[in-house]
Write a protein that binds this DNA or RNA. Sequence first.
DNA 1: TTTGTTGCAAATACTTTGCAACCAG
DNA 2: CTGGTTGCAAAGTATTTGCAACAAA
Lengths: 179, 179
Amino acid sequence: MTITPTSLKAELNEKGWRMTPQRETILNAFQELKQGKHLSVEDLHDRLMQAGEDISLSTIYRTVKLMARMGILRELELAEGHKHYEMNAATPHHHHHMVCVQCNRTLEFENDTVLKQSMKQVEKSGYQLIDCQLTIYAICPEAIRYGYPALPSENWMCTRAIADKTKHKKKMRGHRDDD
Amino acid sequence: MTITPTSLKAELNEKGWRMTPQRETILNAFQELKQGKHLSVEDLHDRLMQAGEDISLSTIYRTVKLMARMGILRELELAEGHKHYEMNAATPHHHHHMVCVQCNRTLEFENDTVLKQSMKQVEKSGYQLIDCQLTIYAICPEAIRYGYPALPSENWMCTRAIADKTKHKKKMRGHRDDD
DNA sequence: TTTGTTGCAAATACTTTGCAACCAG
DNA sequence: CTGGTTGCAAAGTATTTGCAACAAA
């Protein structure tokens, strides 16, 4: 079932919580996100600011955490240092991620077997499934050619990592959210 | 194949890096860890201190990160706030984790299907597998009974979460590493 | 010797929280 | 009205980094 502002409100109220313009705006932002995209809290903040939506960082932190707990968002742990969020079940099929530990290049892939295995496991223990994420840590072909593993401070770097580095300097903080 | 101080040294030297007493101590600490246990950087630091091994936090951070990149350790993202580490392939079978989003109670389970699926995915893309982790986020039976989802600041809490809270106050920082 | 490594302290980065004002129900 | 929510500023906490001293190869 699809989440709408109305259904979100209902779900919130049921728990004694409230719908707010901020929460609606944030929900919309995630729903407008194109397939395979995920945002960090700061990405989301920037994006909202540019759209003229002035929502504080605190509120965004609080909201994404709440929505993740409600199972509306998925909290992804891909690149180092901070979390990314995306709609849960936004894609036609449940998907997972493969990330290169050198350049953080992330590939998304679908795999129903994993979801099935997870449901089996959850049922067995009497738990209730919120989300399951298979994250594959790997080395991308380019990094392999360069002789990875090597520390990031070494004298080589994937093209992606270099692009990232540049972004750091410009924005004074470091991460990637493409792919 | 099992990692030994000797094989670690060889692997390091091959990349132009060095074996040090600190690295050996840290490797040993992880190998002595009983099945299913994982440590945060701070857990490890405390443990080493108690054993009379005075290794700085910086070095531990640097070492676990290096060893994770080398595929010797697995970096786990279970409880909120900080990472846990464990030997990669320490267990007879590859294992994964199911964690309750309310109380952080973590269950470990084995599943070879997931590993097989991951290997398939990795090969398809020409990547080289370092690790794959299926993390299931779920609600434990106890939390379901209490009517989760609810914010942590609500007026109820799993017994595990309460135990955790107590630990916080005592240690002035918050996490769990049991189960 | 050369160059990677350590330890310390300082700096970062990310996230949480207290509190007064605000507003949804 | 009542109590959840927001925004701000001020903490917190986890992690990284510069640098001089040190030590492995």
